[in-house]
């Protein structure tokens, strides 16, 4: 018969590790929740990135504590990881720059697929935005590839008619959210903002992609006055967050 004392004897050396892993998991979950709440009025990409960053920071701290608990010196390991990171950053600075620029241009640059833009002296209709480049189709049927980093660094002019009016807000729904109910409630909520929106263009919700886990949509609004753009974006994001809070399983 193996006694409890014997079992504890086997387990005891690992107990601090288990505690650290459990505590790290709980702290990461709480951090994710708090950051999500704090970022509720931001764009979904920003909120998602901030939450992911928070979880990674907590995980790194937890991992360091685990290494100490099992008797390893984390300093050397962190140094090696840091040096590897710097090497990768230097080697891949061009593509990573473009990738990062795509992330920020998705959020901050006011154009979308289908718009006509002028950047670095070339003009064309945006037909593709991939992680590295934005592809334009010129009037004489030429494909023009613009590195995404140029869209952050240089002046971009959106020459599409009434481009200033359009506000496109991305929305991600978890698989458990009932899309018809969400859309219906959202449209009802947006009727309250109608004085700030162009009466000829009611809000439209368009499905962009769908997986078993989530549905990505874009809510398109047309504003009446250019100076309302930021305020309306914030207000709509707030309403979206409240709506998704009410509907369990919502992701943003």
């Amino acid at each position: 018969m193996v006694g409890l004392a014997t079992i504890w004897g086997w387990f005891a050396p690992y107990f601090p590790v288990v505690v650290i892993v459990v505590v790290t998991t709980v702290v990461a979950w709480v951090a994710d929740l708090i950051i999500g709440r704090l970022m509720r009025q931001s764009t979904p990409q920003m909120a998602r990135t901030a939450r992911r960053l928070g979880v990674v920071v907590v995980a790194v701290i937890g991992g360091t504590l685990v290494l100490q608990a099992v008797g390893l010196n984390p300093t050397v390991i962190l140094l090696v990881i840091g040096l590897l990171g710097v090497t990768v950053l230097v080697a891949l600075r061009e593509p990573l720059g473009n990738y990062g620029a795509k992330y920020f241009s998705d959020i901050y640059t006011p154009f979308k697929i289908g718009d006509t833009i002028l950047v670095q002296g070339v003009s064309g209709k945006v037909i593709e935005i991939n992680p590295m480049t934005t592809v334009l189709l010129s009037e004489n049927d030429q494909l023009i590839s613009v590195p995404n980093v140029a869209l952050i660094r240089d002046v971009v002019i959106n020459t599409s008619p009434q481009a200033w009016k359009e506000v496109a807000i991305p929305v991600s729904l978890g698989a458990t959210v009932d899309l018809p109910t969400f859309e219906s409630d959202l449209l009802k909520s947006l009727t309250k903002l109608r004085l700030r929106l162009d009466p000829r263009f009611p809000p439209v919700l368009t499905t962009k992609s769908r997986t078993a886990q989530s549905t990505d949509l874009v809510l398109t609004l047309m504003i009446r006055r250019p100076e309302d753009r930021d305020a309306i974006t914030l207000e709509v994001n707030k309403r979206l967050a409240e709506l998704l809070d009410r509907m369990r399983g919502g992701l943003r």
Partner: peptide
């Protein structure tokens, strides 16, 4: 203003 009414939200619900 039909497309701005609450009833339109139900029309959208049925179609969705």
């Amino acid at each position: 203003d039909l497309f701005w009414t609450e009833a339109f939200a139900e029309y959208a619900y049925y179609n969705r």
